[in-house]
């Protein structure tokens, strides 16, 4: 199929999709007039039943917990896929690094270290970022946030260390084996946390911990531990993915420098 035929085919199909979509939307409740019962029931009952003030987190890790487990395994699998695809082929391991380095220098692309101001500002930001990430994970059931967002923020911290020009420290903080183990443990923790509910004769992921006072950090039963597991899995996954990309891109270039 050549280029022009494909474009015309796309245009015809696009018009058809647009028409069908508009006619479908006209049957739906108009924008701003939500009338499904589920949202209202959840908004009314969650605070009483689960002692959690952020209903979205409650839906994620309690009412719809098994779905989130599925989502997290998608995340896990795509991280594993990336790691497998980008692992070093054995023929390239003994590539002649000297040749690469001279080639870089010849093109005027040797690596200058970032200025001292950038380094100080970036490394100074790492501490607050870690604290903020932990806060977002820990307060997931109270304010907007939770394991997913907090995990991403935590993953950003080692990346900042790399961006400050310190690949060595990045490798020390985010040791590849540790990160992979953390990734696996995060998902495993989620899986295991579902079991006590079954042992007590209920459903998978059923709450077994005391609910506590709503509005306090220690409330909501199982949600806080699941949140922490998710945070570990997400942050480890993102760091692992970035690590393999970095290793592929930078390894030879940085070897000559230090």
């Amino acid at each position: 199929m050549n280029r022009r035929v494909r474009r015309w085919f796309f245009l015809i199909c696009a018009c058809a999709i647009f028409g069908l979509f508009v006619s479908a939307v006209r049957q739906m409740p108009t924008f701003g007039h939500y009338r499904g019962p589920y949202g209202d029931i959840l908004n009314r009952e969650t605070v009483y039943e689960r002692h959690i003030t952020d209903v979205v987190t409650a839906v994620n890790f309690d009412w719809r917990g098994i779905d989130t487990l599925g989502e997290e395994s998608i995340l896990f699998l795509s991280v594993i896929g990336t790691l497998v695809l980008l692992r070093k082929p054995s023929s390239e391991v003994n590539d002649s690094h000297d040749e690469n380095d001279t080639a870089d220098k010849r093109k005027g692309r040797e690596i200058p270290l970032p200025s001292a101001a950038t380094r100080v500002a970036t490394l100074g930001l790492v501490g607050p970022l870690v604290v903020f990430g932990l806060y977002i994970v820990a307060h997931g059931h109270l304010t907007p946030g939770g394991g997913f967002q907090g995990g991403v923020i935590l993953a950003t911290a080692p990346l900042l260390v790399y961006l400050a020009g310190d690949l060595k420290s990045f490798k020390r903080i985010a040791n590849h084996e540790t990160v992979q183990i953390g990734e696996a443990l995060g998902l495993l923790g989620f899986l295991i946390l579902g079991l006590p509910g079954m042992i007590r004769g209920g459903a998978y992921l059923r709450n077994v911990l005391p609910l506590g006072t709503s509005g306090h950090v220690f409330s909501g039963g199982m949600i806080a531990p699941i949140n922490v597991c998710t945070g570990v899995a997400v942050s480890a996954g993102l760091v692992a993915v970035t690590y393999v990309f970095l290793e592929h891109t930078l390894e030879t270039r940085l070897r000559g420098r230090r």
Binding site: P114, T122, L125, F132, I136, P144, Q149, I153, T156, L163
Partner: peptide
Amino acid sequence: PSTYDLALAMALLTFGGGLVFAR
């Protein structure tokens, strides 16, 4: 008031984002 977290996250992360592109 609980949604001030978003502005804080943006303030902290936008610096890192700029650094990614700059480098």
